[in-house]
Design a protein around this nucleic acid. Structure first.
Lengths: 228, 228
DNA sequence: TCGTATTGTGAGCAGTGCTCACTATTTGAG
DNA sequence: CTCAAATAGTGAGCACTGCTCACAATACGA
């Protein structure tokens, strides 16, 4: 029997988060003001601390929330595809990532932006961050299982073989080095392209960044990673 | 005849920047304190405003400074190479970028990190940002002029041809679409890989990120962009 | 019903960026 | 060399911040 206390608690907790997110969008993480949130909610500024132990903790909650919404978006995009349509899944994942980033720029900035020196993300944060990663890793695993072979050849970089041995152990996927290199590079490119676009380093170059992005995703997926 | 006033002015200006950069490294941009800088410099906090009109302006100066040091690092790496050794230049540029980012993490975060909503970079900032970009653009131009052809084929993404027409005009390089797509993708991958590494999203995957990065750079340069 | 745990309060502390009236000092023209 | 003007430095003060603490109000469960 969830008492009136429990219900009002979840309500105000949500309200605080809602207001924090609004401030995040309009003024950036550095300018979120607990006192202003309290004022907007008609409560004493000190009352906030009954819900969040510090400003940092509020931000951490926002980060986890953002991660999990991103994870959901990526998962949805992936599961909507036929399991065997690897290039379709890759494309869907990449486009969903960009879409989410564009419609949630503040969240994106919070999650993938400059970390504060000394800030150590708590365990749950990292766990939430693994969600979208796992989708991509799974795609690489499926591609390997279905016999996709990368068109590229890994260079004879010193230490690469042993490095990739560790990577394979870390992500739990036994893919050929070529696929690994191609996949990791493709993902880096997707991430990098989105980052450049969101953080505004390419506005003078592209008229419609989405067109170039789509081409980049398709080209890397088919011609570098070798997805079919 | 640089009077005593002019000389002491440049000195204190430099000292303020020095202290600001130190705080940036240890506590992040959000926690730079003008008052503390003033205390460290044994001057009244209000005196800072004789040198910088606001905290934001100090940050802008730090950004421009970072951009220009990055630009210098990239330019040096490039000019140290034989002009005809395209893959060598590409590799040198990419590695120099990563090196600079790793040894100047705070600067990197300031320049390529989350932008503050509403903050409009002044003209000089963008100019400083073009320096390293120009080096990469020049490499693409040289590659085209020397007849390098990309191994990949641009997909038939709707609107890509006209989009790339604009890009070519914007950067002033008349490269084939394949080279353009390959080059932009490669650069996005380099940037993305560095970003992931610096902002700490891959520490569980790689044991030595540098090895993978070197392989990524070489593979993309040779096998995707087609540099020789 | 009543003690307990939870929630809310307002004053207060130490810190911030920034302004302003004011003083001290260097500068360059007459 | 003199002296008004430009420049540099001062400290008090404003409005804001995150956060703490002693205290009061309230819902909860035995």
């Amino acid at each position: 029997m969830t008492g009136k206390r429990a219900v009002v608690r979840t309500e105000t907790t949500a309200a605080i988060i809602r207001h924090a997110r609004r401030q995040l969008e309009t003024r950036g993480a550095a300018n979120i003001s607990l006192r202003e949130i309290a004022r907007d909610l008609d409560m004493a500024s000190s009352a906030i601390y009954r819900y969040f132990e510090s400003r940092d903790q509020l931000l951490t909650v926002l980060i986890i929330d953002a991660y999990s919404r991103l994870g959901a978006a990526i998962e949805d995009a992936d599961t909507a595809c036929d399991r065997d349509d690897l290039i379709g899944r890759w494309t869907a994942i990449a486009l969903a990532f960009r879409d989410w980033a564009l419609t949630n720029q503040a969240d994106y900035g919070l999650v993938f932006g400059t970390p504060v020196p000394g800030y150590e993300a708590p365990e749950d944060t990292n766990a939430a961050g693994m969600r979208y990663t796992n989708v991509v890793v799974q795609l690489v695993a499926d591609a390997t299982a279905r016999g996709c072979t990368s068109a590229i050849e890994p260079p004879k970089t010193k230490g690469l073989v042993s490095e990739y041995r560790n990577v394979k152990k870390a992500i739990g996927v036994n893919a050929p080095d070529a696929t690994l290199l191609a996949g990791l590079s493709a993902w880096a490119a997707v991430f990098g392209a989105i980052n450049l676009e969101i953080f505004g380093h390419v506005d003078i170059v592209y008229t419609d960044p989405g067109v170039h992005f789509a081409a980049l995703v398709d080209m890397l997926g088919r011609q570098v990673v070798g997805l079919t």
